[in-house]
Design a protein around this nucleic acid. Structure first.
Lengths: 244, 244
DNA sequence: ACCTGAACACCGTTCAAGT
DNA sequence: ACCTGAACACCGTTCAAGT
């Protein structure tokens, strides 16, 4: 997609060899920049430098910074493929969860955007929505239960992964890491017995109790259980649904 | 907590009646500001104006803007009370989900922070962690299943609510609203049959298909189903767990 | 149509100086 | 110890001007 046919060269003076600006090209470059140096140090001006244009040139293609962010999220989520094949709800959901996670894992620095942008993203394709609804409906859900299951799937798909890969405090990572580790090391067995007893299997493998993000310490096993739990719960919902 | 005893008055010239600065007072003021005018227009400088001090005065109590944000989140999450009483896992989780949602509903503008900050918040009390682990453990979970269930609960508690109350595109809300509504109105029955058929119950009641945030259009029914699904899934996990 | 260039009204944060 | 005040190196965005 990115290296399709030779682009028309730009007319701009400073960078004769650089490709002409495009909305697509700008979004790609922005995503690349965020992947490389992180969300925090992204700015329209830094992006402009990377593109070898004046900051204001970007505004000819993108109305605002927020809109650019929304389009970056849309670009990432586009990579979540889902085969059009009809299959069981179980298989469909399982693939969806795993595909989504794989995609975010490739772009962990945009994770903070996903959680807040997806829910209100008009740019998102409705094919995905239709497919999810179709599978849920065919499994026997309708009315409020259909809506509830739909919202449940969306919320759960985003929830775990967005948090798993959310960047951990940026500054002095060494300092912060040892701080958390020391805190866990000095947990009193009297005040927190269950926590203390299970510390070995919880350390760096559980939310709030870890010092690395999912990039360095992926929560593979927990995610597997998570998916099982959600799917089992939805199947339970289907059972309690009166047949049409 | 906020109006406990008469504060010592400040020595600063410009605002003789204003209370002396405190880390606590600053965090409270920041949360208040965000509640009133939103996260987007929050800045250290605006906060300073509200406090009637120079921007740099804040830095005597708070090391950085990010740290302040983390403490705001901690302050909000402190309001999620959980009775120390021993009770069934079902009752415990149900209360937890509902309390959490009620708290976020009172501070919807901080919702975007919750999802990304909670997971790595050292400021968070470990009492909560211990309680959750204790209930899950007593219900029969241990080892990887305990870790998985723990992470599942954290992820699901945050997931739905953070997205439900996430502020919707700020600018020209009227324009954006009608844009989404028109898009939904012109959905083709051929391309998106299930979506089209269920549009009446999905409109503004489902993620991606709504034009108002949870503040104006709360997803009460879906949340109830969501909680049921998660709890049913966890109970299923407990059943498959070999007895100790 | 597409980009340059200057300019505006902001930021977070450091550091010296006052009291 | 706690705050003022100036200053630095940035921001996003508007708007006129060039080609």
């Amino acid at each position: 997609m990115k290296d399709a046919q030779p682009r028309t060269r730009s007319r701009r003076s400073g960078a004769p060899d650089a490709p002409a600006l495009t909305r697509e090209y700008i979004v790609d470059a922005a995503l690349e920049y965020i992947d490389e140096v992180g969300l925090e140090s992204f700015s329209m001006r830094n992006l402009a430098t990377k593109l070898q244009v004046y900051p204001t040139a970007i505004y000819w293609y993108v109305p605002t910074r927020n809109e650019l962010m929304a389009q970056i999220v849309a670009r990432v989520l586009d990579q979540v493929i889902s085969s059009k094949r009809r299959r069981s709800l179980d298989a469909f959901l399982r693939d969806l969860f795993n595909n989504f996670r794989d995609v975010i894992r490739r772009h962990p620095n945009v994770a903070p955007l996903i959680g807040t942008q997806l829910v209100s993203n008009t740019n998102m394709g409705l094919e995905f929505v239709e497919q999810l609804l179709a599978h849920l409906s065919r499994a026997g859900l309708s009315g409020a239960a259909l809506v509830g299951a739909y919202n449940t799937v969306i919320a759960t798909i985003v929830g775990f992964t967005a948090q798993e890969f959310a960047p951990i405090p940026t500054e002095g990572s060494d300092q912060w890491q040892t701080q958390v580790r020391e805190r866990l090391a000095t947990i009193s067995r009297e005040s927190y017995p269950v926590l203390a007893a299970n510390l070995p299997i919880l350390s760096n493998r559980a939310f709030i109790l870890r010092w690395e993000s999912g990039v360095e310490a992926p929560l593979d096993e927990s995610f597997r259980i998570y998916v099982d739990v959600v799917i089992a719960g939805i199947e339970r919902l289907i059972e309690t649904q009166p047949a049409a």
